[in-house]
């Protein structure tokens, strides 16, 4: 029962995502390791979105907001730490931080809070209005970041040295990859449990039939808002890691293109499939790397592929390879 084709595929993917960078490390190919790290981090953002989109049926085109808030959490804390400028002096002196665990905590808390506010307002609507409102909130933050000159405005913020994690050398690509990979695995394990939990059952039921959920005495709005907050928090954590990968954060992380890209990862891999974002991100980065070498306009091919998947393989890559069976049974 447990070892279905889909779970075999999932194990193969998560193993490949580990084996490729380790092999690259032994062959001294740091660029490949960086690509794998990018894949792991973007997949994490997708795992976050997939909780709202796949499980809850919430088509959010504003997840760049949470990704960017995570990025700016890293950028702001690290910028103050590197410039020795206190972030605030009251109620206690705080000079920013270059410690990843603290940065992650701040990223998660602030993106969760943003998701709570955005979700509470957006979830009063549904369908196309929900898409437009989440898009609008994302763009609001994007333009705010552009005009926020204290933190680089349009140019963004550069961090000279990657932040630290106790006991590890984060400047070593393989060690930073390990951090991203472990967090991705933890997020996947969490998403798997969530999908099978009482909350997950009720949330996915609200996507399928709202009347039914109300008739058994459960409130779809509360379920969805909770999912939206969890989803935003995970995507925010990915944003902090992504900024650390590039040692750079800019308003681009908040733009609606980013929201679209995260959604493309999920759709390519398979909406609602637990490992969909992993498959989708890996495919995206592979295409970017292989086709990007052929043409600057490689996204034309991506567009064609996306079209084919939407038209003929609704379950995405995983659906095409493993069949209709749902990830959250």
């Amino acid at each position: 029962m447990m070892l279905t084709r889909e779970s075999l595929l999932n194990w193969a993917m998560i193993a490949a995502l580990l084996i490729v960078p380790v092999a690259a490390w032994s062959l001294d190919e740091p660029f490949i390791i960086t690509l794998a790290t990018k894949a792991a981090i973007l997949a994490l953002a997708g795992v976050g979105l997939n909780i709202a989109l796949g499980l809850g049926g919430l088509i959010s085109l504003g997840h760049a907001a949470f990704f960017g808030i995570g990025g700016y959490a890293m950028g702001i804390l690290a910028a103050h730490a590197q410039n020795y400028e206190p972030l605030f002096e009251w109620p206690f002196l705080f000079e920013g931080s270059n410690q990843m665990p603290l940065i992650w905590l701040v990223a998660v808390v602030f993106s969760a809070l943003a998701a709570l506010v955005i979700g509470a307002l957006s979830l009063r609507t549904s369908g196309v209005y929900f898409i437009m409102i989440t898009l609008a909130f994302g763009q609001m933050l994007y333009y705010f970041a552009i005009s926020w000159s204290a933190y680089g405005g349009e140019d963004g913020l550069s961090i000279w040295v990657r932040n630290e994690f106790p006991g590890l050398n984060t400047l070593d690509p393989i060690q930073f990859f390990a951090i991203a990979y472990v967090i991705l695995c933890l997020a996947l394990a969490f998403a798997a449990r969530l999908a099978r939990s009482p909350f997950g059952l009720a949330l996915a039921a609200a996507r399928q039939n709202e009347d039914r959920v109300q008739a058994v005495g459960l409130t779809p709005f509360t379920l969805r808002l909770t999912a939206f907050v969890i989803s935003g928090a995970i995507t925010g954590l990915a944003g902090a890691l992504f900024a650390d990968l590039n040692r750079f954060v800019s308003p681009t992380m908040l733009s609606w293109h980013t929201s679209g890209e995260i959604m493309i990862f999920v759709i390519l891999g398979g909406v609602g499939r637990l490992y969909g974002p992993v498959a989708g991100t890996a495919l995206y980065i592979l295409l970017e790397h292989l086709l990007g070498g052929i043409s600057d306009y490689w996204q034309i091919f991506l567009g064609v592929l996306l079209l084919l998947i939407v038209l003929f393989a609704r379950g995405g890559l995983i659906g095409a390879l493993a069949g209709r069976e749902k990830a959250h049974g």
């Binding site: 939990s197 009482p198 909350f199 005495g217 749902k326």
Partner: peptide, 25 residues
């Protein structure tokens, strides 16, 4: 919930009847 099994639909009802839906693990 059409994607669910028959049993899952019944469990959803039982869950609603019992309350305490905010368990994540």
């Amino acid at each position: 919930a059409m994607e669910y099994t028959v049993l899952q639909n019944a469990v959803l009802g039982a869950l609603g009847g019992r309350g305490r839906v905010f368990h994540f693990f």
